[in-house]
């Protein structure tokens, strides 16, 4: 499966998903004519077109490589891991990925994007016969402005309720300013422990930007937060304007009675994700991940997806 995984990495690095392009275009049209914000988004769109046409990385920071592999019982996880690592090394050689994995203690770059904890691989066994791998490349600038709140939080008057979640998200987006290469997509994980709360937030980022949360309470909060984050006026790159975030996606997990975490995973406009489904030795590529399938997809995307 090495070859298919390599192609998956190439697609993730060089082709921004159509749903992301679409909301960036909408944002571009919403910015004032002749404004730096509009021209920034024009450049972003031109850049994506160029990257796709020339098979070059959309951004030189090819990020943390996050894999979700859904596999049938017959497939060995050890073998999958070996294939993913081999594909990662090859992709680095071919410059689809920048050497991006650094030993935290010695400061030495491994040179091939592999090492302890790199790439990040999550496995899920399922009853289907096919294998589906989802991949996201999450940039460092946007990771640095991600945040986690432990509620209650006195500074922003956030209690352990929907209102507290709302305040945490608005505050995190405010704190990020333009530093995470906005406009960003905001993944929110509520509950869990500190680790799984952030994992939930990141899994939310696999959703299509324009999908709908089937939980009506969360769907309403997502809509409110999208509008309110944009009211902050930070704009693309922090140049000012109405396009501060492109989407807000919220998921919740059970928590301990003692804890209430709200994790905010900020994803830059370079929201690189791709998916491959492998059945009977044949690979089919898609921009709609398995994670996204659990949500209500817009009609057009759903038709194209399969």
């Amino acid at each position: 499966m090495q070859k298919d995984f390599l192609e998956l990495i190439r697609r993730a690095s060089c082709d921004l998903p159509a749903d992301v392009i679409r909301v960036i275009k909408q944002g571009r049209n919403a910015e004032a004519k002749g404004s730096p914000s509009r021209s920034a988004l024009d450049d972003v769109l031109e850049n994506c077109d160029l990257a796709s046409r020339t098979s070059r990385p959309i951004c030189q920071d090819t990020g943390t490589n996050i894999w979700y592999v859904h596999h049938p019982r017959s497939v060995s996880q050890a073998a999958l891991t070996r294939d993913i690592i081999a594909a990662t090394r090859k992709a680095t050689k071919l410059a689809y990925l920048r050497p991006n994995a650094v030993d935290s203690i010695t400061g030495k770059n491994s040179g091939d994007n592999t090492g302890p904890g790199a790439p990040v691989i999550h496995f899920h066994e399922w009853s289907k016969k096919s294998l589906v791998a989802d991949l996201m490349l999450k940039g460092g600038g946007s990771e640095n402005v991600s945040a986690q709140y432990s509620l209650p939080n006195g500074a922003i008057g956030a209690g352990r309720d929907l209102e507290g979640i709302r305040r945490s998200v608005v505050d995190a987006v405010f704190n990020a300013q333009g530093k995470g290469c906005g406009p960003g997509i905001i993944g929110v994980g509520v509950g869990g422990d500190r680790a799984t709360s952030m994992i939930e937030a990141k899994e939310q980022l696999f959703r299509l930007v324009n999908d709908k949360n089937p939980d009506p309470v969360l769907a309403k909060l997502e809509k409110t937060l999208l509008a309110q984050c944009n009211e902050l006026g930070i704009g693309p790159m922090g140049f000012g304007g109405s396009t501060t975030v492109l989407g807000v996606k919220i998921g919740a997990r059970h928590r301990l009675p003692a804890s209430f975490f709200v994790s905010i995973a900020y994803l830059c406009w370079a929201a690189r994700r791709a998916s491959v489904s492998i059945a009977g030795g044949r690979a089919t590529y898609s921009q709609i991940s398995q994670q996204a399938m659990k949500y209500k997809l817009p009609a057009v995307a759903a038709r194209k997806g399969r």
């Binding site: 450049d43 990257a51 959309i58 600038g141």
Partner: peptide, 13 residues
């Protein structure tokens, strides 16, 4: 001067 964050191929060209 603020360049466009992430616009790597565009600026390289």
């Amino acid at each position: 001067l603020h360049a466009i964050g992430g616009a790597a191929p565009l600026l390289a060209d």
